[in-house]
Nucleic acid binder design. Sequence first.
DNA 1: CCAAGTTTTGTCAACAGTGACATAGCATGC
DNA 2: GCATGCTATGTCACTGTTGACAAAACTTGG
Lengths: 202, 202
Amino acid sequence: MARNPQTVRSERTRVALRRAATELFASQGVEATSAEQIAEAAGVTVRTFYRHFPSKHDLLFADYDTGLQWFRKALAGRPAGEPVLESVRAAIFAFPYDVQALTQMAAFRAEELDPERIVGHLHQVEADLADAVTEHLERGADPDRRLDVLVTSRVIAAAVFGAMEVWMQRESRSMADLADVTQATLAALESGLGADGMFRHY
Amino acid sequence: MARNPQTVRSERTRVALRRAATELFASQGVEATSAEQIAEAAGVTVRTFYRHFPSKHDLLFADYDTGLQWFRKALAGRPAGEPVLESVRAAIFAFPYDVQALTQMAAFRAEELDPERIVGHLHQVEADLADAVTEHLERGADPDRRLDVLVTSRVIAAAVFGAMEVWMQRESRSMADLADVTQATLAALESGLGADGMFRHY
DNA sequence: CCAAGTTTTGTCAACAGTGACATAGCATGC
DNA sequence: GCATGCTATGTCACTGTTGACAAAACTTGG
């Protein structure tokens, strides 16, 4: 299946670097881990490391696509008639927080990262989340309501990430807190906008 | 007049660094000049260099305030009844392009600099230019037209920097070209919006 | 003028990132 | 199998940037 012949080796290296980085980030923190350590743990040179990843921090988000795929499948797996908000909530709360995700959260909490980097990444995640919801909603929805779908998706994504922002500005930022804030935000969305059935029509 | 006692030395160092950087940037280009060279030319250590300027590129814009002050004074020196656009044009074209400014331009032309840095700086310059025009217009204008003043200022600044953007995307980017584009842009602004007297009322 | 304290600078070491060039790994045509 | 050629990697050297600590310059109270 490997189209490119020598690229197999490249892929192996990339995986090794990802794994090494994930472990080191989790055990020592992001900033406390040097590029040299990652490279060495992956059995590779620093220069090679930088050939595969543009920067150290990109490795922190390396498994991001995996998580995104998971989320989309989780949405797809929800029962057909279920209100969107419930689907999203279920998917979010069932998300398997692995080492990668937890390390990211830890880095966020510790404010280790360059704010620009965080904001940029979260922006991307929010957009992807909205797309996932859109994709989910468009299954079995009539095309006339495409705008509704779009708006609904963005609103939900904005709410979820608004919750995260609130969480990030709190004094105590535990995972339980994040869950609470997210829960509350979605509830508010539901009660405030659910009356006219905006989210019930799907 | 030197309020802070030991700060005199600090100021001397800063000046030396600025001068050294300006010369080296002009003669070799920005990226071809290393922080070490600048520090050495200023008779100082690299570490000291970074204590006075957050990054090498900040030195490229070090004399920026001087230029801004010049522009404001040039505006203030224009005759009272003159249309704003004419005042701005006169001030822009009388601007004394010193080594600093020319080096900046050269760096822009050569696309040496990180685009983000350029955009960020230009954004600042545009805002400052607008403020300068506002300040100029507010002299002797009645307070009721404050919004007009604000809009006019922004429009002019946007036009001038729009011209610069056009210039930066051209094939040949000589100083003469920049002058031409700026001239043309201001002329368009004048003929297009001058009919209703928007710029003539001042 | 001297002692004490503050500010500035120097020294050292480390890390992030990049370019140039050499070399090893693998694949394909012969 | 072997020469040929491409790709991934290694090596080297360099620049930008920062933290920690020491040394020097300078100011001020006495």
